[in-house]
Write a protein that binds this DNA or RNA. Structure first.
Lengths: 173, 173
DNA sequence: GAAACCTTGTAAGGTTCCCTGACCAAGTGA
DNA sequence: TCACTTGGTCAGGGAACCTTACAAGGTTTC
């Protein structure tokens, strides 16, 4: 270990002052920093009424229509929690529900035109921020960060990683 | 970008299915994975009544005694919130308050013997987990992760980084 | 084809964790 | 001394989750 903080850590532990030396603490800080910047970018869009909680829906919902249950499973939340968020986003005009033609119990959830645009802007914002980090800290380092995080995600929580991660060969068009 | 997920991302966006492609999503996953493992390690100690919320105190408090206000500033929370957590940890026997001899308004907060041991075990657990990650994903990659995260923390939230990070030259013993 | 069982979504209510506002007691400075 | 600041507590509230219970619609079994 020859990091900047490594030396400080010795010093800190010696005088009984820990703080900020753990890896997750540093990661929390980095994640939080990115979310803060993200919210700043969001404020320059027409979609300022989207709250952080809504992210768990925008992250997974797509145009074809999804069931509440699937959304909840992916988000790792209960149906009730996601249901409330979906109600909220419906009220705000980002998503809409319509009956599932194949199952009278179920409703399908999909983005409205406004919702699709908001999602597009959201993902674009994250790409922008990743590019900014690449600029600021080195493209190779950020690329390495991404691949490392992918490896960790695959190893540690494969269930949280949907079929996305190991894509089947695309069907010939 | 030549990551595993990059290809999946193309695929996913093409069919309108985002999910898990952003950097913070991956980081959240990694952080959460580490906290889960941490809690598992904690369960093998006598200190199973320590909840995640208590971390914001254990992370910063040290043996010499600190004021609530300082603790709150470092943790980025209000005095009231930290006050409640401190009450809780006092009830559980991890920390204790005693009057500040230099200021009759203030009380100093410090770890009890039990608290010191719990903190020691906690930090040791994080070191263990970091070592496990190094074993699993490559020591060089984890070291690079740490230095990158430090750079990001310094650049993005210097205020959250206490004097620790830029240590003054240690006094000659 | 009816009974038993599972799934989808909703309703009601609770917990945790954090906040704001108001306040007192003690220190600080003109 | 009088205003102002600072350390900490009290009271109350809200956001984001959860659990329990249930109704309506599918599915399975014989």
């Amino acid at each position: 270990m020859d990091s900047k903080i490594a030396a400080a850590k010795e010093l800190a532990l010696a005088k009984g002052d820990p703080s900020l030396v753990t890896l997750p603490a540093l990661m929390d800080l980095a994640v939080e920093a990115m979310y803060v910047d993200f919210r700043k970018l969001l404020e320059e869009t027409p979609y300022t009424d989207v709250r952080p909680t809504h992210g768990c829906v925008f992250r997974f919902v797509h145009g074809d229509g999804m069931r509440l249950t699937e959304l909840a499973t992916r988000a790792g939340l209960t149906k009730q929690s996601v249901g409330e968020i979906v109600d909220d986003l419906t009220r705000l005009g980002y998503i809409e529900r319509f009956p599932d033609p194949t199952d009278k119990r179920a409703k399908l959830i999909r983005l409205t035109t406004k919702g699709l645009d908001a999602q597009r802007l959201g993902f674009a914002a994250f790409e922008t921020l990743e590019a900014e980090w690449a600029e600021a800290f080195g493209a190779d380092r950020i690329a390495a960060l991404r691949t490392l995080l992918e490896d960790i995600a695959l190893a540690k929580s494969p269930d949280a990683v949907p079929e996305l991660v190991r894509p089947e060969p695309a069907p010939v068009p």
